[in-house]
Design a protein around this nucleic acid. Structure first.
Lengths: 259, 259
DNA sequence: CAAAGTTGAATCGTATCCAATTGACGCGGA
DNA sequence: TCCGCGTCAATTGGATACGATTCAACTTTG
């Protein structure tokens, strides 16, 4: 995993430069993951093994491997005998993912903030710059990528690979959730929040940094349209009612930390 | 492992009652996982695809699928072109796994403790009883299984599937770690700790329950022989010195919660 | 015209086959 | 005695072939 290369190149491009022996299946996995992250593959997209196989000029076996790995990260869903699709997370899962992030990210900060080296600070600054650039350019995909990279880079500094990999998975699933439930098309994370977050982190105050992170995650979640649309059965009347009040109180399970 | 004899301890994950033939690959996966959990397969065991295939009377393809899934859960390690083995976690990974558990399990308690239903209490009691029985019978494998089931069952009550699955993976990896680094052969978890834990949980005091859980996990970790044996390079002299002091201070990264 | 039964295409799941890599064994030389 | 080198068996990695399943469109009939 760790789809960091993701040059977003055309998938079919091949044999051009054999500079890397990186097995094809990994490349397929990373390409698909990146496509999902950056919302070029919306939920519901069908991922045919055969199609992908001929796209990458490779047999179904290797495509299948990539697909299974993605499924284990919950980035695609494999329905028996019915093919793989990029899943549409339900509201409960969405809330749980955010709750999990509110657990893990502050915990990582508890380790990273006290031991922040100068190099780490530079790395964070670079990530923030990339974030700001993406915002200035109004480049949605770049924004999403930059946001993920920021959280990823921050998490890596804690030095706990286990939790880092968990968070990496959560970041991917968050992209999917945002793709499914975003309300406004533009800013899925406000412009300067990461910048402010770095300031707080750099101050060395662990508790403050954790609170800031939790607030940030709550903000992100609040921007989404998380209500039970699973009941898509027959409230057509409600759908047609232009005055429907969709401002049901969140009432999320506040899985913040110990306290 | 005696192929199909292992139908006993189904992880109880699937109560869907579907008359599915429960595809063989899943059974293989569960069997191997159980064998690792209960330490019938010590680290280093080679898992030949061909061997497993003829054991289950199935082609290598399906064995391979099970193996890959286990690898994504870090329960087996697949070395390219060299086959799969059950891995030997290094000390850093061991510490990280315990640190992760100290993050996730208290967070789960924050959700489960306040809303503990009567049925939950009965479930916990049953789990504790199974634990005690295993201890009384001096049945190592049953003890390990009961301990895992206890933590699993407790975690399930929080209602966050995402964190639950993370913890499930951590529990499995913990088994592996214990198998690798346990010092004394008998009690990898003291006899009445889970019982006391349930008492604290039932009291409804979230903070107390979290503290008790953290202490319990620290105890488990402390019972292990976690010192850097990765430095197997050339301190032969030290290894040969019978008086070598192996009581280096732990100095673990105390990734406890937010506070 | 509507509903039920039938048929067909597409896709997945498993098995088998062949190529590629690895680690081991044995031989010869310093 | 130890080290380097070449051949070889074993195992994995990937491709292809075939049966099984599912979904959807079509036809037929009441």
């Amino acid at each position: 995993m760790t789809a960091q290369a993701t040059t977003t190149g055309a998938p079919a491009d091949e044999t051009a430069a054999e500079d890397r022996p990186a097995s094809v299946d990994i490349r397929i996995e990373q390409d698909i993951a990146a496509a999902i992250f950056e919302q070029r593959m919306p939920p519901g997209t069908r991922l045919s093994e055969a199609r992908l196989g001929q796209l990458y000029e490779v047999s179904r076996t290797v495509v299948r491997k990539a697909l299974f790995r993605l499924a284990s990260d919950r980035l695609v869903e494999i329905r028996p005998n019915r093919g793989a699709i990029v899943p549409r997370p339900d509201v409960t899962e969405a809330r749980n993912v955010f709750a999990a992030r509110r657990v893990i990210e502050p915990a990582l900060l508890a380790d990273s903030v006290p031991h922040l080296a100068a190099a780490d600070r530079r790395t964070l600054d670079a990530l923030v710059v990339a974030d700001r650039r993406a915002h200035e350019a109004r480049d949605r995909q770049a924004m999403i990528r930059a946001s993920g990279d920021f959280h990823r880079g921050l998490a890596r500094m804690a030095g706990n690979d286990v939790l880092f990999e968990f968070l990496e998975q959560l970041i991917g699933r968050t992209s999917l959730i945002i793709a499914t439930y975003q309300t406004y098309v533009l800013p899925h994370c406000a412009e300067h929040v990461h910048e402010a977050l770095v300031e707080t982190i750099a101050s060395g105050d662990v508790a403050a940094a954790q609170q800031a992170m939790i607030r940030h995650l709550l903000d992100c979640e609040a921007q989404l349209h998380l209500q039970d649309d699973d009941t898509e059965t027959d409230d057509l009347a409600g759908m047609l009612d232009a005055h429907a009040t969709d401002t049901a109180a969140p009432a999320f399970t506040d899985t913040r930390n110990a306290r």
